[in-house]
Design a protein around this nucleic acid. Sequence first.
DNA 1: GCCTAAGCGAGACGGTACGTCTGGTCTTAAG
DNA 2: CTTAAGACCAGACGTACCGTCTCGCTTAGGC
Lengths: 185, 185, 185, 185
Amino acid sequence: MPESTRRNPQVHRAILDAAWDLTAAGGWAAVSVDAIVARAGVGKRTVYRWWTGKAAVVLEAFLDRARANPVTTRATTAEGLLRAHARHFADLYVDTVLGRVFTGLLGAAQQDPDLAARLEEHWFEPRRAPVRAAVREVAGPDVDVDLLLDLVFAPLHYRLLTGRRPLDHTYADAVVTSVVRGVLG
Amino acid sequence: MPESTRRNPQVHRAILDAAWDLTAAGGWAAVSVDAIVARAGVGKRTVYRWWTGKAAVVLEAFLDRARANPVTTRATTAEGLLRAHARHFADLYVDTVLGRVFTGLLGAAQQDPDLAARLEEHWFEPRRAPVRAAVREVAGPDVDVDLLLDLVFAPLHYRLLTGRRPLDHTYADAVVTSVVRGVLG
Amino acid sequence: MPESTRRNPQVHRAILDAAWDLTAAGGWAAVSVDAIVARAGVGKRTVYRWWTGKAAVVLEAFLDRARANPVTTRATTAEGLLRAHARHFADLYVDTVLGRVFTGLLGAAQQDPDLAARLEEHWFEPRRAPVRAAVREVAGPDVDVDLLLDLVFAPLHYRLLTGRRPLDHTYADAVVTSVVRGVLG
Amino acid sequence: MPESTRRNPQVHRAILDAAWDLTAAGGWAAVSVDAIVARAGVGKRTVYRWWTGKAAVVLEAFLDRARANPVTTRATTAEGLLRAHARHFADLYVDTVLGRVFTGLLGAAQQDPDLAARLEEHWFEPRRAPVRAAVREVAGPDVDVDLLLDLVFAPLHYRLLTGRRPLDHTYADAVVTSVVRGVLG
DNA sequence: GCCTAAGCGAGACGGTACGTCTGGTCTTAAG
DNA sequence: CTTAAGACCAGACGTACCGTCTCGCTTAGGC
């Protein structure tokens, strides 16, 4: 994500593609700066000039692809909106390269505060913002929208990360319904 | 976790302590088999004889310490029980060595299915079981208790892992209340 | 040249051989720790455990081979002794792998005092010593033997290093004769 | 040494000065094209346009400074002439920046035939020529002057390069005397 | 009370990846 | 066309860990 006037776009692209392909082929563990460099036919120096290391490259490659999948919904109720986003979450990550990259990034972010910050800034927050705004509009003013978003999205991430129980539309719907209406009412 | 008649308990202890101390001092990244071996005054072979690697050692050290902190509550309602466990979660992990080790383990588990399975078996499930049983007793029969537990504990983990917003009693209470009664009622 | 009880002799040999073969094939410039490691099928760490770098490895390989070429002469006069050694010098280095390695080492030693010291200790001095002793015996007591050796061997090295004029038996003989009898007498 | 009509003299100067200053400050190893470029405030391309690399730049800087130290003597005998040149050699190189640069160049020339040729052409030969001519005049016609020069200057270079024994006027005189009169008479 | 199997400290070993460095080529924009 | 600036490929550098292995020492049990 650094800036420069002279950056060579082909090289930039080749590096991101190499990182993506490597992750797709062998998962997070298959990616290394050495491997990226070899596959992209690029000098090591070039990678370290523009990124801090493997995580930064993979993050950018991830953002690149993930941004191509915006949520589209015409729902007009808070529940409908949340349901649409929850289902989209499942579709986006479950059994996809994107999902594997994402969990890799989340794992690495545990030991890399800088990566965590970039993830928050360039992924979590941009995704939350429109949902937050939309929900705030249709929900009453005394609703804690951020808490609501946590309650919906945290379980989805939880299932994604633990990977031991299914994360499908059924589960997404159940989460949204329960959160909106209360479990023990 | 392995078995043997001949295992030397002092050595076993020394290794776990070394792993723990290293994590306490420098975080997950400061731990390596080489470092453990150096600090414990132990042969590398000995570590690999009884564990599969650094993650397994740290996991055992973690379980060792974490089990010393059981939840105690005399609550008799589902909401009270959940609140007690949610608050205990915050106390246990926030700004503690235990918390740092835990997030390290969760991060590593993203790339290590075996570690993930052990975590589930030896930590998540043993912790869930009594809560599940207790809640099932006081809640009605038509409540999806597992979903309920997800809804409560996932947000807590979420905050712990992202680390960007506070995870305190206030938040724990808010989560439990909202989940039980519904956010939009 | 370090010592250890546990050193694996096969590995030691393989590294020296690799260094030698690389120099023979492509000269001093073709040798690098990476190349040695690749050719010997050895870990990088193993090279750096026993040597300080490429120069140290090549030096040892050089000494290894060079020691197999002792000077043999039955000369009983100072002039005869010196002539034998001068001719041997030419035979040993001119158009031989040994010669190329030697000049490489001398070149590197200009920027590496440690290498220079090792060369002096393990090569120059052990070669000088017997000649010095032998010459001292047959020459009178008021002869500066070390100066004499300089006067004979320096020109030989000079031709070897500059490489612009031939270094053959004719030249070796001329040097010895001139030094012994005086040029302008 | 290259030629061009458009060459900018200030830039030329700045590069030579940078190379010289770097060598003076940190020795041969401290010089690199990158370092020269940084210190001279010059583009890398500019250096490679006019020189073949670091060695060529340093060589030119060396010649530039060294030529400012001509030998002056009114000696009329061969021995006197040689003695003057031998002493001048010691003064010029021992414990001087010039000496350090010179040994660096000689070291590099071992792996760089082009550099060796330039050294011979622009330094060794121009220095030898006048001495050769002068000596030839005063010495008889049957003296091998080139051999004589070798015998005198080689030991001086030898001491300079090995650096393990002193190279002073006493040594210079001893060499000249011995060579002229013969060591063993 | 041996004796043989194991656990054990020590650490060498083949590997892979790291992040830094230099060399030499090439591109861009200003003059 | 020269220059400053610097991106770029290439690849060596020396370090850190990993997980396997081999060495002797010591310490159990089984005899």
